[in-house]
Nucleic acid binder design. Structure first.
Lengths: 367, 367
DNA sequence: CTGAAAGCGCTTACAG
DNA sequence: CTGAAAGCGCTTACAG
């Protein structure tokens, strides 16, 4: 009934706990014969080292994790950071130390490489980054793994690199959801316009691909009548007016899919303030406080959220597990939930456990 | 830089760690003067006892938690149990022992009371139940708290009892979401029929209340043209035919809201197999494998899920925290997420972190 | 290759 | 009211 301990196994074999420990963790300095005897008993009793004891005794060697994350848009990355902090709070007692850096610029490889170098000077065991698609970064990641610094990617991925695992959304799927929502809001028949960000980003490309794919495959009654591609930020002050007149001059349509995760509020305002557009159904990504207001108004019908809190939380937890146990996540790509957010399930009451704080290190209540 | 320990504080004051420990945890046998000195330093250094060390030393006194949960419908309660098991796996090393009992009958107070008595014989520190609305149960809960057994309610609540906290859904809100979904699927205009379970249940009543409330307040274009109340199970073999003919004879309508969480598949089948009903939009609660199939077919448009995994997971985590730290959850009612499930975000790939297993005791991958 | 011992940071009988 | 010591279960230098 009582759980088997290291001591029990040592006693039964008449050897010391030290040796049992060495055998179990495949450390050098145990004879093949002894190792086998130990492993047999371990299997027989299904012995698992007690984690609490293990972590306590491991405390002497702190584990350092460096994180470099984005800062914009704040409504999104603040939630990611909240997740990171929650994991930090939990794991501090387990011997983890976190160094968090934020990028000033949006997806700029030079700044990213600089910060990586700053962190490696501080002797880190693991690193979390939001990668950009760059060969210099690829090379850097490979260098790091040479030095056996484990690298995890967060929110976006970089192919053909030696990064250990990815935590983030299923990008294409999130565009497919957008397609399904619009199709169902239109009772399977209608015309839609997409607004595409003019930024090179795997995420945006994949969303759009997913959106088109599902309309083509399953919702043939929905016509994609126009795609407008522009860099909303670059339009500056005039942005709203420009987009407004483009949309108003598009002819009849029923819905707008806004592909990026930053312009949704502005697009919503355009629709709200235009008699002609007022009845268009708007679907987009990520819920900011401003977006919530437009959902209250009924202007934005639904949003797809990629659970930023969990992204931050789990990338740290998983990396820590790897560094402590040598245990890789079960999948190369660990996907976070894609939540469909309506007015009535916008997470607002603070007592929602979307994640929750606890002694024994559960997630902390999200933003 | 280094974290302050009990020893550090003891050294600085020239007293023993034992005394510091006693002062911090408000245990008897410390002079007021000493206690004050200690607490001052604790505040100064913002000292928090190391959890890992604490739990390891606490191991001697195991904490026993009894859980009595439902078994039907299995597709729902299996997920709840998966959450319970995940919490158990995590907390076993922290000194928690779980005794899980399942009820054979659906919400039957006698069986529940029996099981409670069985558990109290085994000396439990905490108890989790799915309550029914009964004065005998109320009395029993009060008895238990007299004996300082902490009781938490799961999935359903019981008012005016001394239960410590509730973990489960926001019932009324989930009916409101159903209303919003149907309204948006119908472009704010149409006729709806509700199917109400003929079972006394706070949950069902509240859902229906929420549904009607939101139609009245916000979606005035949606007409509730009929409410059918019946006990689907009691109809037996003929159930489908009976409901089918009722629905077919109802006159024109556009959508069906199925209020309970068990009949959804059957209702979907009825709609699927009836020419007349085929175009009705179906919205309901909880996603079983069968329901998934009808979502694939496009028969069921969307489901509302109350995150059964988290219900099981967090009720255990929170209760354990209370028993170990004496720390009550921040809210009397801790709500789980209400997820809106579409075909494209049905959680199926196993690498979705809807929760995830980790060393340091994160949630385990849900079902 | 193996053992004995010290240590991780906290808690708790046991003495005084 | 307070201290010294043992213990939770594992890991790791240090000897041999």
């Amino acid at each position: 009934m009582k759980k088997v301990t290291l001591q029990d196994i040592a006693d039964e074999l008449g050897i010391s706990k030290g040796t049992v420990d060495r055998a179990i963790h495949n450390r050098p300095g145990v004879s093949a014969a002894t190792r086998e005897k130990v492993l047999n008993l371990v299997k027989k009793y299904n012995y698992k080292p007690n984690k609490v004891a293990r972590l306590l005794s491991l405390k002497s060697k702190m584990i350092n994790i460096g994180v470099i994350c984005q800062s914009n848009p704040a409504f999104f990355w603040n939630n990611v950071k909240a997740g990171i902090k929650a994991a930090e709070a939990e794991l501090a007692d387990f011997g983890m130390q976190l160094i968090l850096k934020e990028l000033k610029n949006y997806r700029e490889v030079n700044e990213l490489l600089e910060k990586i170098d700053e962190l490696t000077v501080e002797k880190i065991d693991g690193l979390v980054i939001v990668p950009v698609n760059s060969d210099r970064l690829r090379k850097k990641i490979n260098e790091l793994s040479q030095k056996s610094i484990a690298v995890a990617t967060l929110n976006d991925d970089i192919t053909d690199s030696s990064r250990l695992f990815y935590v983030g959304p299923q990008m294409r799927q999130s565009g497919r959801i957008a397609g399904e929502l619009i199709a169902k809001f239109l009772r399977l028949k209608g015309r839609v316009v997409t607004l595409n960000p003019n930024i090179q980003s795997l995420e945006y490309e994949e969303r759009l691909r997913g959106f088109k794919e599902i309309l083509r495959e399953e919702y043939k009654g929905i016509n994609l009548i126009a795609e407008y591609t522009f860099n909303y930020d670059a339009l500056g002050e005039n942005g709203q007016n420009v987009i407004k007149s483009i949309l108003e001059n598009t002819g009849e349509f029923d819905a707008i899919y806004d592909v990026d995760g930053v312009s949704l509020y502005d697009i919503g305002c355009i629709v709200k303030n235009s008699k002609k557009l007022r009845n268009a159904i708007v679907v987009g990504h990520e819920v900011s406080e401003n977006v919530k207001r437009l959902m209250e108004d009924g202007i934005i019908h639904a949003c797809i959220s990629q659970d930023p809190f969990s992204q931050g939380y789990y990338v740290i937890k998983l990396l820590f597990d790897y560094l402590v146990e040598g245990k890789k996540p079960p999948f190369d790509r660990m996907y976070t939930r894609l939540d469909v957010i309506f007015k009535e399930n916008m997470i607002s009451p603070r007592n929602i456990i979307n994640s929750y704080s606890s002694t024994s290190s559960g997630p902390v209540a999200g933003s």
